[in-house]
C-alpha cells in the first residue's frame, strides 16, 4: 500500500517538474514548483527523514515561493 503511494508521489514529482519546465507563465510555474516541494516533503517523510521534510515544507514550499512571487511582481510575469 505504502509502496503504491510512493509510486504515485514520484510520478507526481516528475509531472510537476515537467510542468515547471513547460509553463511559460512564471506565476503559475512558481506555484507548481511549490506543489513539487510539498510532494518532495511527503517523499522525505516516506524515506524516514522528518528533519528534511520539515525543512522542505517550510523553505521549499513556503519561503522560496514567496521570494519567487515577490521577484515576479517586481519584474515581468512571462518568460520570453
Amino acid at each position: 500500500m505504502l509502496w503504491r503511494l510512493d509510486i504515485i508521489l514520484l510520478l507526481f514529482l516528475v509531472a510537476t517538474a515537467l510542468g515547471v519546465y513547460v509553463t511559460k507563465d512564471l506565476m503559475a510555474a512558481s506555484i507548481i514548483f511549490s506543489a513539487y516541494s510539498l510532494t518532495m516533503a511527503i517523499v522525505w517523510q516516506q524515506l524516514s527523514a522528518p528533519d528534511l521534510a520539515l525543512t522542505e515544507a517550510a523553505v521549499g514550499a513556503g519561503v522560496t515561493t514567496v521570494l519567487f512571487l515577490i521577484t515576479i511582481s517586481k519584474t515581468v510575469r512571462r518568460e520570453d
Binding site: 522528518p50 528533519d51 521534510a53 520539515l54 517550510a58 523553505v59 513556503g62 519561503v63
Partner: peptide, 17 residues
C-alpha cells in the same frame, strides 16, 4: 525529536514573512 535550529528558524522566518 525531529527538527532543530534550521527547521524552527525557517518556520519562524516564514511567520515573519
Amino acid at each position: 525529536s525531529p527538527g532543530g535550529g534550521f527547521q524552527g528558524g525557517a518556520v519562524f522566518g516564514a511567520s515573519m514573512i
